[in-house]
Structure formats: structure tokens, C-alpha cells
Design a protein around this nucleic acid. Structure first.
Lengths: 102, 102
DNA sequence: CGTGTAAGGAATTCTGACACG
DNA sequence: CGTGTAAGGAATTCTGACACG
């Protein structure tokens, strides 16, 4: 169920190259609870491809002048929405939907 | 066309954790031309998830007592086979096959 | 608020080599 | 042949802080 996209194996230096962000920014966005890297045994941060994509989205928002607090709120909404979808799936409601459409 | 699996972003320490192999072994398999990590600007090795999977297969072969030279020969064969498949696809022969089966 | 930077330490990675077998 | 290890250096990453605004 967990794919490569969710596997936290990329160190911060590589994330910098991939996203164009500085280490400072990436750590700051963690401080502001926008990303949640894993930690290796020795304490170094490890990111997934999903994290990298999220950071690129955050970078775009920041360029538009959106503050980290607002970005966080948007992310929360998405989180809730996803939970909702998962609950519906669990209840079989979406499946029912699909059947009705057929 | 290139997916996350082919993206070389994992440093050797993480590959060790993922595969259970020592750095020495991983570097040696490179010396024997079994794996081809990329290099970061500063010269550190970077592996893809595909590389990690390949290394796990190599580890199994080695446990069976297969020598690196033989493993290399097997990998070469696979390489050639894949090239063959790609050529067939290019020529549309496989598509023809599929149509015939229908 | 968001980001840069210098600071000092700890951990990572690299290469070439010696060792054993 | 395949792998461990000690060696020395270079690059990475971490945290807490000061700075500017």
C-alpha cells in the first residue's frame, strides 16, 4: 500500500537540488508544520518524493506571497477532505455511487 | 517516462539500511559493474529504488554462492532481452500479437 | 514573518591500501 | 574473489542564535 512516493529516503541536500530551496527554508517549513520528514538513526532528516512535491507546491505559494500559516490551513483542509473520502470508501458509499452511475 | 523508481536520489548510507548490505559490498558491486549509481556534484553516490531492488537481488545471488562475474553475465542477458522487447514494440510486432490473440 | 549566515560539533562519504583467504 | 578495516580528508547535517525587517 505504501509506494515509493511515500518512502522517506532522500536527505536534505538532495531535496535542495530537487526543489531549488535552501536548507534553511526547508527546515523552517518543518518548524511551521508544513512537512514532516522522518529521521534516520543518527538524526538526519529523510524526505519522500511526496514531500519533495509538496515542498515545490509550497515554494509556489510562497512566491505568490502566501504565508506559511495560510498554507498550513489549506493543507489541513486537504487532510480533512482526504479523511472524508477514506471514510466514504470505508462505508461503501462511493462504491454505491459508482454502481448508480452504471 | 522516467518514474520515481529510476530517480537516483538515495545516498549509500540509506541504501545500506534498505538492503542490509555494507558500504564496502555496495561499492564493490559497482566496481564489478553490477550497479551504476549517479554522482552528486560533490561526488557522493546516489541510487534509485531500482538500484536498491537490484542490490537485494544481487545479495540473494551472493548468498547462493553465485559469483559477481556470473551475476554480471545474467544481467547482461536481461539487458539484451529488454532491448529485444523494445525493438519488437517499436516494430509493432507485439501489438500484432495482441490483436491476433483477440 | 521568513530567511541568511557564521559557529562548532557530530556523522557521512570518498579513495587507496593492507589483510585474509 | 569478496569483504573487513583503519586512515585522513572533504563534504553533510544538525542545533541554537543573531541579524534584518
Amino acid at each position: 500500500m505504501i509506494s515509493y512516493k511515500d518512502n522517506k529516503v532522500i536527505s536534505i541536500g538532495t531535496v535542495c537540488e530537487l526543489t531549488g530551496l535552501s536548507e534553511r527554508k526547508i527546515r523552517y517549513y518543518e518548524e511551521r508544520k508544513l512537512v514532516y520528514p522522518a529521521r534516520s538513526k543518527k538524526g538526519t532528516r529523510k524526505y519522500s518524493f511526496n514531500d519533495v512535491e509538496l515542498l515545490m507546491k509550497i515554494a509556489n505559494k510562497r512566491e505568490e506571497g502566501v504565508q506559511t500559516y495560510e498554507i498550513r490551513q489549506e493543507l489541513k483542509k486537504k487532510h480533512i477532505q482526504e479523511k472524508g473520502i477514506r471514510n466514504e470508501l470505508r462505508k461503501g458509499q462511493l462504491n454505491a455511487h459508482f454502481h448508480m452511475k452504471k
